[in-house]
Write a protein that binds this DNA or RNA. Structure first.
Lengths: 215, 215
DNA sequence: TCACTAATTATACACTTGCATAATTACGAA
DNA sequence: TTCGTAATTATGCAAGTGTATAATTAGTGA
């Protein structure tokens, strides 16, 4: 029998990488990219700093991986939650807007991360590509949904017009998302999703709030 | 006659402070708050680093001053440009939206600064106050303008409704401002102001594009 | 012209940073 | 059980950080 404590535990590579990435993200959210020092990351992941270099050959690599993880999680989460809604295109559009403006998508941490990474995104080509892809994905999906909603309502619009509508709706969503995260106390719970649905409805010229009534 | 070059030139306190603040802002926009080191700031302001401490007792103080300057400049600039427009409330609202979505208000540098400061804003009480005041100022002014536009059109709405409309319009403006600055190549010149005016019009239920025709 | 003073530079220090490299230790295979 | 190896820790280093303090220098008033 030994009462010696193991000095450390071995984990799988995936677990350790994920732990390091999550530690990085929480620190970036709090103090920005430069505030996420290797020592702070190691401490938060309950590991000594040397281990970081064992999994990521440089801090840059870790930060980039953390950004990819975060963006992918956000996109997947948003689409997954919105996809749970079955019903008319109109209901689905309303759900997508709502999900985008509620936690866990819309919350201070997410906005802080977005803001913290912006500098690096504008300089690093790989991160820039991720950023643009994420943006385009969301807007394309939004555009498809808007088209379906308009079809459903028997209205037809030109491609140019549809593109404008999608950009505008994306703008409202992003703007409200931003404000909700940057000024969390300025809005009542549920206020932003409500405003979002109403505004998107106004822009495309349909009332999204009136749910399809089917027992 | 002496061909000795003066080793430095004395400037007024205001000029030096302003130069240091501008150097700080450009560095913050490029590399974030932590990237704006005293040595880099000094170099960009064409000064040795010791001088910074002569005008600002700490780096924190300089950064806070730079933030205040930037936010004040942005607000003043927006309102000043919008105020140049004379005419109906509707025209003024349209002008405010346009100005907010065109350079020099809407440009990558401004968005980068906003993002870079966000972390500090959420932690530092003084900066937080500045942030909230700026936001409230803009939204209140927007709200007043919307009320005037609705009055002009012979429509009346409740205070609650007006508040919602202002928040929504502010959201579109902020969102488009953000996207224009974060993805400058994703939009054609003039595209965002157009979308902004159209969307704000849709939200409040009036066409802002049709100018008042009076010879 | 000549000090006097504040603006500016010069230098130094303690601390943090990312990265490298050596020394341990856990855990599976034999 | 023992042994090998990869995971993990321990230690060190050069460069960069903010700040403090002393040494210069420019411009002003007498």
């Amino acid at each position: 029998m030994s009462d010696e404590r193991r000095k450390f535990k071995r984990e799988s590579a995936d677990q350790r990488k994920e732990a390091l990435i999550q530690a990085t993200l929480s620190l970036v959210a709090e103090n920005g990219v430069r505030g996420a020092t290797v020592r702070a990351i190691a401490e938060r992941a309950d590991v000594t700093q040397g281990l970081i270099r064992h999994y990521f050959s440089t801090k840059e690599e870790l930060v980039t991986a953390a950004y990819e993880t975060h963006m992918t999680e956000m996109t997947d989460l948003t689409f997954a939650m919105a996809a749970k809604v079955r019903g008319s295109a109109r209901d689905q559009l309303a759900a997508l807007v709502r999900v985008s403006l509620e936690p866990p998508v819309a919350e201070p941490r997410a906005v802080a991360l977005w803001a913290s990474f912006l500098n690096k995104v504008q300089q690093d080509a790989q991160m820039k590509a991720t950023h643009e892809r994420t943006y385009a994905d969301f807007r394309d999906r939004l555009q498809d949904l808007i088209r379906a909603v308009l079809d459903e309502a028997g209205r037809s619009v030109s491609d140019t017009r549809l593109h404008h509508l999608a950009t505008a709706c994306n703008g409202v969503i992003d703007g409200l998302w931003l404000e909700g995260g940057a000024l969390p106390d300025a809005f009542a719970p549920g206020e932003l999703p409500g405003i979002g649905v109403e505004s998107v409805g106004a822009i495309i010229g349909l009332d999204l709030e009136q749910r399809a009534q089917q027992p």
